[in-house]
């Protein structure tokens, strides 16, 4: 009896193994009606748009979701063997890192015609899809002294109260911008002053906002849409609000999510079509209302309850220059934030 059960168990396992063996090659078959996307944008918020394009174009999408920096590293590792056709990143730094390795193809001017040129790489290796502002999220019940500048954050009033997400690509892009504009020494001193002020480290932006909501911390550096995202996820109002630093402060930096087409891809036409879809007037407007991100088309409406991009008081940052994320990461490791 026990023997029979055992044999059938073994048989089942063997069958499973055979099935696995058979199923793998089909994943690799290339077909002109499939595109492979590496997406650093989280599935919940980009998937509906990609599904709509899939339906309209009839092209099947294979999508790998992960963190932007992780995917950038994976693309570098894969080199010309990469199965990806498009890299969709949550920040300009990850895009720049891939562009720097020469792994993107230059996009023709027929792609993303409506997008303002500030949000396109100088060599057209990538193109911005949505805009996002760096803000501080805070709990208005717990915090009354709001910071005017990022340098205020080392003050005693924020001791153990500030949350950051050093693994997050948007945070790293912000630090890279600081390195570019204020120099490595200044940046290192600023980071060290945060560490000294017992800055709280979180794995990602949404975790910062959740911690603000539950009162663990009272302020955190995040992108503008996380307060809304977390409130959506929890299905209730939360005790967190967005705040901006004084006009022109680096803390108000505007970054983009964007996309590039890999040189190793053989499906440029379909890939360009997808990018054109995401940068079309219709979809850009949908980003504003459905994911509360900024449209990159000039003079478009801003997301609900937020100032327009030009009214934020953002510093002038050349997104193209954010490509040296490796140096930023080395600094973050050095000061013990990674």
């Amino acid at each position: 009896m026990a023997k029979k059960v055992g044999l059938s168990l073994l048989l089942a396992l063997a069958t499973a193994l055979t099935l696995v063996g058979c199923s793998s090659p089909s994943d690799q078959e290339s077909s002109s009606t499939e595109l492979t996307i590496y997406s650093g944008r989280s599935e919940e918020f980009i998937a509906p748009f990609l599904a709509q394009w899939e339906q309209e174009s009839g092209v099947k999408l294979n999508i790998r979701y992960a963190d932007s920096a992780e995917l950038a590293a994976q693309i570098r590792e894969e080199g010309s063997n990469s199965p990806a056709d498009i890299f969709l990143a949550q920040d300009a730094g990850s895009l720049g890192a891939v562009a720097r390795e020469g792994l993107f193809t230059a996009l023709p001017t027929s792609v993303g015609v409506k997008i303002a040129s500030t949000y396109i790489a100088g060599d057209r290796s990538w193109i911005g899809i949505t805009g996002r502002a760096r803000v501080f999220a805070y709990n208005p019940e717990l915090l009354t002294t709001l910071p005017q500048s990022i340098t205020d954050l080392s003050k005693p009033v924020y001791t153990s109260q500030l949350g950051i997400a050093p693994t997050n690509a948007s945070f790293q892009a912000f630090v890279t911008a600081m390195m570019n504009s204020k120099g490595e020494e200044f940046t290192q001193r600023w980071l060290e002053s945060l560490v000294k002020n017992d800055v709280q480290i979180f794995p990602k932006n949404s975790a910062i906002v959740e911690a603000i909501d539950s009162g663990i911390i009272s302020i955190g550096l995040v992108n503008h849409y996380y307060v809304w995202e977390v409130s959506q996820g929890l299905g209730r109002e939360i005790k967190a609000k967005n705040g901006f630093f004084a006009s022109g402060d680096l803390g108000n930096m505007i970054n983009v999510s964007g996309a590039g087409i890999l040189k190793s891809s053989s499906k440029y036409a379909a890939a360009e079509n997808l990018i054109n879809f995401l940068t079309s007037q219709e979809i850009q407007a949908k980003f504003v209302t459905q994911t509360l991100e900024y449209s990159l088309i000039a003079n478009e409406k801003s997301p609900a309850n937020l100032p327009t991009l030009s009214a934020i008081g953002a510093p002038t940052v050349d997104l193209d220059s954010l490509n040296n994320i490796q140096k930023t990461q080395e600094l973050l490791i050095k000061v013990g934030l990674l």
């Binding site: 992960a66 963190d67 920096a69 992780e70 950038a72 590293a73 570098r76 590792e77 890192a97 050093p166 693994t167 997050n168 690509a169 790293q172 709280q200 480290i201 979180f202 794995p203 975790a207 994320i325 490796q326 990461q329 080395e330 490791i333 990674l338």
Partner: peptide
């Protein structure tokens, strides 16, 4: 939110370009 060796490896892997 506790950084053990495994978490640190995962963090470095996910967030750095240099593995």
């Amino acid at each position: 939110n506790v950084t053990t060796l495994t978490v640190s490896i995962q963090n470095l892997f996910k967030s750095t370009y240099d593995r």
